[in-house]
């Protein structure tokens, strides 16, 4: 079932923070409720962009392929999480595999629905893009933190002794 504007704002305050609640109706009507059974994929690493997903209940494991061909579980996304924002913003392939760990409900906005929203309600589309950019800015800071706090031998192997300065 599609959410109400109030439900969307309550469950995903970060997503709609930049928009007035009264403006949410055009977004709500474009969200597609989708249920995933345990083991089903929301996205496959390197596969097509799955659209923006708002995780309502259940969860997904985040998996990355290893050089040996196996996959490594990096973590889990739970209710309130946002899915697919990287490929949503740059149109590129999925950056990770997302596999449902239980029956999982998602409100999904595919790219065609977003483009329709952008044409009819550009201010709301701007607010949504801004919220996704904030999410990504936080992930960029975490990625830099991972590099800067990695073990010294790892940094030497990847960047060369003494770095590039």
């Amino acid at each position: 079932m599609r959410p109400s504007s109030d439900e969307l704002a309550k469950r995903f305050p970060g997503v709609v923070a930049a928009a007035h609640r009264a403006d949410l109706a055009p977004l709500v009507t474009r969200l597609e409720p989708v249920t995933f059974e345990a083991g089903e994929l929301y996205a496959r690493e390197g596969g097509p962009a799955p659209g923006l997903g708002l995780l309502v209940s259940g969860g997904f494991s985040v998996e990355l392929a290893t050089p040996g061909g196996a996959s490594e579980v990096l973590g889990e996304v739970g209710p309130g999480g946002v899915l697919g924002e990287v490929s949503f913003l740059d149109g590129g392939p999925s950056s990770a595999t997302l596999r449902a760990t239980a029956e999982t409900n998602v409100w999904r906005l595919d790219m065609a629905a977003f483009e329709a929203l952008a044409s009819a309600h550009p201010r709301l589309a701007v607010a949504l893009l801004h919220a996704m950019s904030e999410t990504l800015a936080a992930r960029i800071r975490r990625a830099i933190g991972r590099i800067e706090t990695a073990r010294p031998e790892s940094v030497r192997a990847l960047f060369g002794v003494g770095g590039a300065s």
């Binding site: 990355l64 924002e85 990287v86 490929s87 740059d90 589309a125 960029i140 991972r146 990847l158």
Partner: peptide, 25 residues
């Protein structure tokens, strides 16, 4: 906002690839 989001996404992919490389290294 599209350009900003797109560039942030590309920056994240570059940095994330480097951070993953550290794990492998």
């Amino acid at each position: 906002q599209r350009a900003l989001g797109g560039e942030l996404a590309r920056e994240f992919r570059r940095l994330d690839a480097r951070a993953r490389g550290l794990v492998g290294a």
